[in-house]
Design a protein around this nucleic acid. Structure first.
Lengths: 345, 345
DNA sequence: TCCTCTTGTGGGAACGTTCCCACCAATTTC
DNA sequence: GAAATTGGTGGGAACGTTCCCACAAGAGGA
């Protein structure tokens, strides 16, 4: 069961050539006769040779490993990012080593150490620690990913275009007659928060609306937090119809539960708009209208950019990928003749 | 940016000892004086030493890498499994290399080759290809995971206890008065299918009911497929109240959409029971009652078992982890005095 | 005919670690 | 007091590959 596995020397022996020739044949190098190449390939087949990537990595410096450090692989958004990354990494003939930091700075630091010790060729990283930055990171090709990516403009980064997404959201609400939505935002401490608020402020300022008067609730990114935040919004805000814009789909789904529990109807009395585009939004009643982040694409393009870094090729060093409106049924159109709402299913 | 990284020899030089002593100190071996150890540790710190895992793996045969080959990392169930695996792998000081085969046999085979070339210490595998089996697999420690795992009794395996889960489901339905539910099952070709059907048959046989008369629809594991399967069930089955038992939550959620579209009410007229326990089930109306598979635990225990295999320690070679009933609101209790249903929220 | 150039081949060094063995000095044992 | 044992140390080989250089044989030009 634990037999020694054949090496390139075994192949060479079997083929009756030197290990150099065997290596050349196996690597598809130029200067080998076709005859020799065939013999070697045949021999490799017979002995069941499989290239030892550890040895390759050690000698050539190319380990074939790419590191991905994210908060949580089981979170729908990050799972999608990972999937996109995995597909591209495979296309480049590399393998993906994944780490979940669970939003813990300590684990992130530990993972970063592990990933470096594994001699990965490059790292894709979503930082939990917003502020601090270890200089030692930059001696390995690195791409920052996610919404906080653009906060490191000196580092290559790829993330969703929060500004464009927020604009899309606000514009959609605006056109449907929701001119001053209540907001459920993420923890103030997180990097994305500032960007959201700035984008919102800008949108309404352009229309002469002072968004600082808006009703805002802060909540962690869970549906429970969204539920309670919405309860508070609903109770202190008797105006109907009302619109709630949540910066995460889980928050939005929590809001929908709160609306139902309060005996209100969505979207007739309270509209809800989410931001993420996770699959669960399809199953609520009504299905959740949301701004969809290009999660899988983020993973794919991050790998492309990282490979460019690894191979020292010039390329875009900063990429903001556009969000898309996923129109389902949770936002009412107040513009249409009142009574029956025009709600896209 | 791409400076040569310090080796153990640099550390030894800095500390004024031989590389052997440096290695012993860094590995926490016995026979080193405390003074020497301190000096070496200090020196490692100064030069910024990070152990090269490629070299370690090559010399010692322990690469520190564990392979995980699953159908899709972005699927909620598998993402949970991966998360559990990741946590345990980390506890053992290893790293996780993840591959998504996307339910393609070709990609699975390719991944298996990659994972072997990476010289992983062991592999956790959920097979897409149900029948064929390459003998060469067994020369590396291997643990089969998922519901098909128990189909390879000669191989170490860990998965959810389908029999117990189905029994839990059928018993719950039975006690609530649903004696002959309609079924939405997965593709016949998949391994799990046979186990589901056998478990269902056994449960009802024990109660003198011939389950072969049940209304059964086959569908791929998507909500669309569940939707259409349910439409067919509802149209050919006018009996109300009716119960639909789906072998996957996505199928069940699709069923709930079909019920709503047909103008029926859930659970009053049609009850729905799912099988998975994914997060999206919380957001449907009513929230989905489902049998929850121990997804994360499967990942964790698979790693434990794999490490036992790697270290050649005896241990359980087959593990069926119990499912749990997640009672929410999609199954009516026909036993309670008719009219108002007693539905647990 | 000799020299150069090309093409294919082979051998050795190197990558950074661990493992094995030899060594030295200090201590213990007879 | 000599021999045996112990604890700490150092040096070299080995892991499997790639890279570099040397070399042989043949082709081509002078």
């Amino acid at each position: 069961m634990r037999a020694k596995r054949p090496t390139i020397i075994d192949v060479a022996k079997e083929a009756g050539v030197s290990k150099s020739t065997a290596a050349r044949a196996l690597n598809g190098a130029e200067n080998v006769t076709d005859a020799a190449r065939q013999t070697v390939l045949k021999a490799a087949e017979t002995v069941g040779y499989e290239r030892n990537h550890l040895a390759v990595g050690m000698r050539s410096g190319r380990s074939g490993l790419i590191g991905l450090v994210i908060p949580d692989i089981s979170h729908p958004f990050w799972a999608d990012v990972a999937r996109g990354a995995q597909d591209r990494v495979e296309a480049y003939g590399r393998s993906l080593v994944i780490f979940s930091s669970d939003w813990s700075i300590d684990r992130e630091v530990a993972h970063l150490r592990s990933v470096r010790q594994a001699r990965v060729e490059g790292i894709m990283l979503n930082r939990v620690a917003d502020r601090t930055f270890d200089d030692r990171l930059t001696d390995i090709p690195l791409v920052m990913i996610g919404s906080s990516a653009a906060m490191f403009p000196d580092l290559p980064n790829v993330g969703s275009n929060i500004d464009q997404g927020v604009r899309l959201a606000c514009d959609y609400l605006w056109r449907r007659g929701h001119k001053s939505p209540s907001l459920i935002v993420g923890p103030h401490a997180r990097l994305a928060h500032g960007r959201f608020m700035a984008a919102i402020e800008r949108f309404y300022a352009e229309r002469g609306v002072d968004s600082s008067q808006f009703d805002v609730e802060e909540a962690t990114y869970t549906d429970e937090a969204g539920y309670h935040a919405s309860k508070r919004i609903l109770s202190r805000n008797p105006r109907r119809p009302l619109a709630i814009f949540a910066v995460s789909d889980l928050l939005a789904l929590g809001a929908m539960m709160a609306i139902r529990d309060t005996g209100l109807s969505c979207p007739e009395e309270v509209s809800v708009l989410g931001f993420d585009g996770i699959a669960a939004g399809r199953f609520s009643v009504p299905p959740l209208t949301a701004i969809q982040k290009p999660s899988r694409l983020i993973g794919e393009r991050a790998v492309d950019m990282l490979i460019e870094e690894i191979e020292d090729r010039p390329g875009d060093r900063s990429l903001s990928l556009d969000c898309v409106l996923q129109e389902r049924g949770s936002v009412a159109d107040l513009g249409s003749k009142s009574g029956r709402m025009s709600v896209v299913a």
